[in-house]
């Protein structure tokens, strides 16, 4: 019995490549939805909007305090129950069984990642000098305008490295999607391994593919940092 079947190892790459889009889809959709949600949550907490801010605090605590896998299961098996309840109570006509499993993945991952991101964003906004907002208000801008034009762009520069971190972690977490039979890279790896009855080779291969994707993300974030920190001029610490 060979220790490492190199032919089999190579043969797994085309199969794995076929499902890279699934991994990327989950990552990109969840990341974008999370940033938007996280911004809302962060602002609710910074501006202490009554009622919503306690809800936001509980949400962040729960989403960060429970395992991602549990959240996936709660999403996949729990949402249909809620829909069932609504159907019985209000007579809605919604067939949950036809919703593709990946939608539940989008939901669960956004739920989870947004909580972490909201803390990143909140910290980044608070890191911006109060004077920036005061100057915005003093020329007559609304808080929203000041946020959008002055504070958030600067906060983005602060938060970007952390965003990159989160994105990279998210790529790896997508491997849990197979638990509700969404075939992304990890699921495909299991299928290939079971089919060929050789597991080590395919796991090495899939590890390399994950790594390659994460390296690309690192590079993109570095490029983003350079752009977003233009205004720091010559005095800026160069991103490594």
């Amino acid at each position: 019995m060979k220790l490492f079947d190199f032919q089999f190892f190579l043969s797994t790459f085309p199969e794995l490549a076929r499902v890279i889009p699934v991994t990327l889809k989950i990552t990109i959709v969840a990341m974008l939805a999370s940033v938007v949600t996280a911004l809302a949550v962060a602002l609710v907490r910074i501006y202490r909007i009554p009622g919503l801010r306690q809800l936001a605090a509980v949400y962040v605590s729960f989403a960060r305090g429970t395992p991602m896998l549990v959240q996936i299961y709660l999403s996949y098996y729990g949402i249909p129950l809620v829909v069932q309840f609504l159907r019985d109570k209000y007579g809605w006509n919604l067939d949950v069984s036809q919703i593709p499993a990946i939608v539940f993945i989008y939901f669960a991952f956004t739920f989870n990642v947004a909580a972490y991101l909201s803390e990143t964003i909140r910290a980044a906004i608070l890191a911006i000098d109060k004077g920036q907002m005061e100057a915005s208000l003093s020329v007559g801008m609304s808080s929203l305008q000041g946020l959008r034009r002055i504070v958030l762009p600067q906060a983005l520069a602060v938060a970007l490295p952390s965003f990159g971190n989160t994105a990279i972690a998210l790529v790896k977490d997508t491997s849990l999607a197979f638990m509700i039979s969404v075939v992304e890279m990890m699921g495909e790896a299991k299928i290939l391994g079971a089919r060929g009855l050789r597991f080590f080779e395919v796991y090495v291969a899939v590890a390399l593919v994950y790594w390659a994707i994460c390296i690309i993300i690192e590079r993109l974030v570095a490029l983003g940092e350079k752009r977003v920190r233009r205004f720091e001029g010559l005095s800026a610490v160069r991103p490594s």
Partner: peptide, 14 residues
Amino acid sequence: VGTGVGSNYSKHLE
């Protein structure tokens, strides 16, 4: 049709 990864049933279906 649902099936477990690598099971004999999978093989027949495939």
